[in-house]
Design a protein around this nucleic acid. Structure first.
Length: 507
RNA sequence: GGCCCGUUCGUCUAGGGGUUAGGACAGCAGAUUUUCAUUCUGUAAACAGGGGUUCGAUUCCCCUACGGGCUACCA
């Protein structure tokens, strides 16, 4: 038996922005496809017209692009199975629903949503909280199994609304081997007669999904754990169609950092971190949800963090290039239990990637902000700023924290002054130090440090007696990069005036 | 409620019938540093509980507890 070409798909619903759990699912699919030299397709499952959200599809495509995990086929990419949007595939599904009816695996049902609602409510009152349209109850409902054939024909002829339901057999065991979980077993008696084809002429997820996966030659279905309960239905449907089923892998969920439950849109705003890759503006309410991109996360850091949320290599490697991910990834090593998301570790990843990003690239990232702030500097200078600020930056914006690298300080931190500045005495020391700097050539970190050393020796002073003063004069604060580094970057022509101004101001 | 899935440091996890149960983030403590940050070193921290199987179980089996998912003409 030859193994078929690996073809996997990411099949989101355009009901809103894609959240990070979805991105992880896409990532795992992508890695699996790449690893096996296969195809990674994107299919849009927009069969529920009532939940359609404008812009969501584009958002999903943009997100994958930003993350660098682009499909090779599908919506926006084309391919031999076009169209890849289920709403555009609408005409083809009915025939499949009918095929199942002919084969005795499905039937027409004429019960209205209101009737079903009523039955469920009554069942609840009768302390049967879980009424199902199933192999037993279907015999008391209005469908082609209970109604006379001519009645059914008449209803169809008249154009009465109907749905097609799967005829789940009784007393059978459905089992399938999940790549992550091993054998999973269900009894068909627990399964209900799911609607496959809706009265609006659209298939439900279940029908469209199976038909599309089959016709698109999908070899592996890698999806979230929330689909595990419907997997047996899908397995039964493949059996009904007499199609070979793909292999399944159900991924564990991403859980909220605090408490329990799966990570939801609300958690982000509540806990102060993004749950979406890109910022999203709700077209209905205008509400804005923050995105990793806008928050200053690098896509590679984001992806790397996601990779390790539910998967781990056998060694202790944590930082992966995309190629390394492809090389190392195996579905078998995906964990079985849900993972709580840790925003702190995500920051750590970002910090690591910031440091590994070329200075010039970082400069390009922050240049717009530099210009916006009105700093009159060139890119070489900005790279110098980055050199000094990188080790204390988690996000690109942190690189611009030291305003004193661009502008003369306009005030002096009162705590710093109170602690280090002695009126009269300090000014005298600084004045002498300024005189040394004035003749210093060249004006570099090395020469400044050497001059400082000499200055301290000549005047029998300790480092702590001069450096803090120099720092206050240069920056106005006591924190930040080394004073000599700041001085060398800013340049002598600005350093000297800063010292004079400080002396005048503080006395 | 029913069905299904799960359970190793606070968190992400490695491991696997006999280990000092390893790493990372976060924490704490030191060292280096003019400061902040970095870096380095050290430290604390886990096999949910109970039964089996076994010479031996954290690892295999069962039960319980706990957590999660699903339970729509939504995906």
């Amino acid at each position: 038996m030859t193994s078929p070409r690996v073809r996997v798909r990411f099949a989101p619903s355009p009901t809103g922005p894609l959240h990070m759990g979805g991105v992880r699912t896409a990532l795992y699919n992508y890695l699996f496809a790449k690893k096996h030299g296969g195809d990674f397709l994107i299919r849009i499952e927009d069969t529920d017209q009532t939940r359609y959200v404008p812009g969501a599809e584009q958002y999903i495509l943009d997100s994958l692009k930003w993350c660098g995990i682009e499909p090779t086929e599908g919506v926006g990419y084309g391919g031999k199975h076009e169209p890849y949007r289920q709403s555009e595939r609408k005409p083809m599904y009915k025939a499949y629903a009918l095929e199942l009816i002919e084969k005795g695996w499905a039937y027409y049902a004429f019960d209205t949503p209101e009737e079903l609602d009523n039955i469920r409510k009554q069942a609840e009152l009768a302390k049967m909280p879980n009424w199902q349209y199933n192999s037993i109850s279907r015999m008391t409902m209005k469908n082609s199994l209970t109604l006379p054939a001519d009645d059914v024909a008449a209803r169809l002829e008249k154009g009465d609304p109907f749905v097609v339901r799967f005829k789940m057999p009784r007393n059978e065991e459905v089992r399938f081997q999940d790549i992550i979980r091993g054998w999973v077993v269900f009894s068909t008696n627990e399964l209900d007669d799911k609607v496959l084809y809706k009265s609006d002429g659209m298939p439900t997820y279940h029908l469209a999904n199976i038909v599309d996966d089959h016709t698109m030659e999908i070899s592996h279905v890698i999806r979230g754990e929330e689909w595990l309960p419907s997997a047996p239905l899908h397995v039964m449907m493949y059996r009904a169609f007499e199609w070979e089923a793909p292999l399944f892998a159900h991924l564990p969920l991403i859980l909220k950092p605090d408490g329990n439950g799966k990570l939801s849109k609300r958690d982000g705003d509540r806990l102060g971190f993004p749950v979406f890759p890109l910022q999203w503006t709700d077209p209905e309410t205008g509400n804005i949800s923050s995105g990793y991109r806008e928050s200053g996360y690098l896509p590679k850091a984001f992806i790397n963090m996601l990779l390790l949320l539910g998967w781990a290599p056998s060694n202790n490697q944590e930082i992966f290039t995309l190629d390394e991910m492809v090389e190392a990834f195996t579905i078998e090593r995906v964990g079985k239990s849900g993972s709580k998301f840790d925003p702190e570790k995500t920051k750590w990843f970002n910090q690591q990637y910031m440091r590994n990003t070329p200075r010039a690239e970082l400069a390009d990232m922050i240049m717009p902000a530099v210009i916006e702030k009105g700093y009159d500097v060139d890119k070489a200078f900005v790279e110098g700023v980055i050199e000094l600020m990188l080790e204390r930056a988690i996000f690109p914006k942190d690189l611009l924290d030291g305003e004193y690298l661009f502008l003369d300080p306009t005030s002096y931190d009162t705590d710093a002054v109170a602690k280090k500045w002695k009126v009269g005495e300090s000014a005298a020391i600084l004045q002498k130090w300024a005189a040394v700097l004035e003749t210093l050539e060249p004006f570099t970190v090395e020469t400044i440090d050497a001059a400082m050393k000499q200055f301290l020796a000549d005047n029998s002073l300790g480092m702590g007696a001069v450096m803090p003063l120099f720092r206050i004069a240069l920056t106005g604060v006591l924190t930040g990069p080394g004073a000599s580094h700041v001085a060398a970057l800013v340049g002598k022509e600005f350093v000297l005036p800063r010292i004079q101004k400080c002396i005048e101001t503080l006395g």
